[in-house]
Amino acid sequence: MTRFDAADTAERRKLFAEAVLAHRNRGSQFLTIEVDPADVPGVDADDEDEPVAVPWIQFAEKTFNLDCDEAELDRLKDLLSEFPECRIDQIERPEEAEGTNVRITARSDANRLGQFADRALQVTYGLDDDYRAWVTQI
């Protein structure tokens, strides 16, 4: 991979698909995609006093992993009807943490997985079409 961020739908999906392929080819433990803090709704990225909760999604082998609140989980569940190859495998609500951790089994090719990662981030976290995402770990 030669680039690690993208800010339009086609480029993000291409980036995410390339990251899935790189993850598979390298046999890495997982890959991580993070949203640019400046693109998170309702967050002032310049406010140093308020920590920014950056949406992220990880992929390992055939599983996506992300954290969300209840409203975000509802949006994620609705999205799954568009991706029949993806299903929620596990939902955890740890007492010591705010929110929910969701694991989604996804069996498909890299392009389709890239599409899912893009839509999952956008729909779950209410991001605009031009949000910037970074592949931060492969």
Rank of each mutant, 00 (worst) to 15 (best):
D47I: 08
D39R: 00
I33H: 10
E34S: 10
K62W: 08
D39S: 04
F64Y: 15
I57H: 02
V54A: 02
E34Q: 14
V40E: 03
A53Y: 12
P55I: 03
L66F: 15
D46Q: 13
E61I: 10
L66T: 12
E48P: 01
A53W: 09
F59G: 08
V35E: 12
P37Y: 00
D46I: 03
V35S: 11
P55L: 03
Q58I: 00
P41Q: 06
W56R: 07
E50T: 15
D46V: 06
P51C: 11
V54F: 02
A45V: 12
D49Q: 14
V54G: 01
D44W: 02
N65V: 10
V35I: 10
I57G: 01
L31W: 06
D49S: 13
P37I: 00
Q58G: 13
L66D: 10
N65R: 12
L66C: 12
N65A: 10
I57N: 03
P37T: 01
T63D: 02
P55E: 04
V43R: 08
N65P: 01
L31V: 04
A60R: 08
D47G: 14
E34I: 01
T63A: 06
T32A: 11
D36N: 15
I57Y: 04
P37L: 01
V54D: 00
E50D: 14
E61P: 04
E50Y: 07
P37D: 02
E48R: 13
K62E: 14
V40M: 03
D39Y: 00
I33M: 09
I57R: 03
I57T: 07
D49L: 15
F59R: 07
P37F: 01
P41V: 07
W56Y: 09
E50R: 14
T63L: 05
A45S: 15
I33L: 12
T63M: 02
P37M: 03
E50A: 14
L66P: 14
P37W: 00
A60P: 00
V43H: 00
T32P: 01
A45F: 11
P41N: 08
I57V: 09
D39N: 13
T63V: 09
I57E: 02
G42V: 04
D47V: 10
P51R: 09
I33D: 09
D47Q: 13
D39E: 05
P41Y: 07
W56L: 00
A38C: 06
Q58W: 02
P37G: 06
T32S: 13
G42H: 05
D46A: 12
V43F: 02
A38T: 07
A38M: 04
E34Y: 03
E34P: 00
N65H: 14
V52K: 12
D49K: 15
I57P: 04
E50G: 03
A60T: 12
T63W: 00
V40C: 05
D49H: 15
V40Y: 05
D39M: 03
Q58L: 03
P37A: 05
T32C: 09
A45L: 03
V54E: 05
G42C: 02
A60H: 08
P51I: 08
T63P: 00
D46N: 15
D47R: 13
T63I: 04
A60S: 12
W56T: 04
